[in-house]
Nucleic acid binder design. Structure first.
Lengths: 75, 75
DNA sequence: ATGTGACTTAAAGTCCGTA
DNA sequence: GTACGGACTTTAAGTCACA
């Protein structure tokens, strides 16, 4: 498991949920990127905790995944 | 009511909720800024829909307000 | 299908001041 | 107590070539 700071807690929760839900839905990073208008590299970075996304990007990811905001926030 | 783009929907929901909860708790922008380590100007800007905050800042605001993430996302 | 480094540009976020 | 502006520094957005 990756080590993370307290200040990054929510970020890592969102990233982990994104990765889990994305694969459960059978989507690749590239496909999700296409659906949400975000580069696959960026999604890769985010899932590994290397990006601090904005709310706008968060919304686009949710829409691409077809889930609700809270689905990415709940542990 | 302020006009906003579809792509800003979540942002405006969060901003409106922040403002509402903050005042209900009797906190000023400055006090919330102090608690969450964010400048009062930035909070003012955000509440008026002029800023696209990151997840890290979102987390700090939540902690400063002492609420749960979903409290800022639910309409 | 995903991870990484390096990169440019756009925007996040601060601080000063005024009203 | 909040809104708004200018000037500023730091970081996120977004892409690319390649492993």
């Amino acid at each position: 498991m990756k080590k993370y700071n307290e200040e990054d807690a929510l970020l890592f929760i969102v990233a982990a949920n994104l990765k889990k839900i994305r694969s459960h839905k059978g989507l690749t990073q590239e496909e999700l990127g296409f659906r949400s208008g975000i580069s696959k590299n960026y999604i890769s970075d985010f899932e590994r905790g290397r990006r601090n996304i904005t709310i706008k990007v968060f919304q686009r990811l949710i829409e691409g995944l077809e889930v609700e905001p809270q689905d990415l926030l709940t542990l």
